[in-house]
Design a protein around this nucleic acid. Structure first.
Lengths: 122, 122
DNA sequence: CTGATATTTAAGTTATAACTAAAATATATC
DNA sequence: GATATATTTTAGTTATAACTTAAATATCAG
């Protein structure tokens, strides 16, 4: 267990992802749809963090990518996480904590200005 | 192990404090002097976080406060942390990571304006 | 090739963690 | 009381994590 792995595991959002990819491999899109309250881009960034920490395996097939939690990389942390999730109060705690620890910008209302890329209409 | 405890443990600075208070109880001042690169105020705030997470015991004696890591609260995390610290590469890794993950404001140069409190010279 | 779908990457926003200096609090000593 | 020391608390700063939208990339189907 490295420092990067420990800090990756500490994030509630990444824990949710690890839990979804715990038993079977799942695609990035499936994770996105299961989470529901976050954009695809955000999910992809978190998956990148987990992969760089060595906590998930990736397998590309066609245009999908399958992710799976590397439980062997978690060592004793695997059962620690499972115990947290198995706790009957876990869902309630999680809900309460998400309410308090919401991160990032609020959803935008105004459509932002066009941001041209790679040789715009200049 | 709760979510708050896991996130408390993930911080390198708080890990350093847990390590200093691992075997014997130490005062806040001793921790401050051992760390060396941080103010007393910052140390005190981190100690408060650790205490609220239930990861340290506190004992007041005179004007000092003694802190001690609650290893029984760490469960399997205790050996995880010890293994990280026992790793021969730990110090090098930590130094390299601190270089990259330095947090908070840079030390100030200009003396800030007087900030009167509780009935200033108005 | 065009268009659709899956995902990553880029650039920008916001909330928050970790810090700072200084004021406040508490205790000990004179 | 006054002064010194140990610690906590407050208010403000900065760096960063987690998000956003949109562009880019890649693959598939026609």
């Amino acid at each position: 267990m490295t420092a990067a792995q420990l800090s990756a595991i500490a994030s509630p959002r990444r824990q949710e992802i690890l839990r979804l990819a715990w038993a079977n491999e799942v695609t990035a899109g499936e994770i996105h749809r299961a989470l529901g309250d976050v954009t695809f881009g955000a999910v992809s960034l978190q998956l990148g963090t987990l992969q760089r920490a060595g906590l998930v395996d990736t397998r590309a097939q066609g245009r999908m990518r399958y992710y799976k939690t590397r439980r062997e990389a978690l060592g004793p942390m695997a059962s620690v996480l499972r115990q947290m999730w198995d706790d009957a109060l876990w869902r309630l705690k999680l809900a309460a904590e998400l309410e308090q620890t919401r991160r990032g910008p609020k959803p935008r209302r105004k459509p932002p200005r066009k941001r041209p890329r790679k040789g715009g209409e200049q």
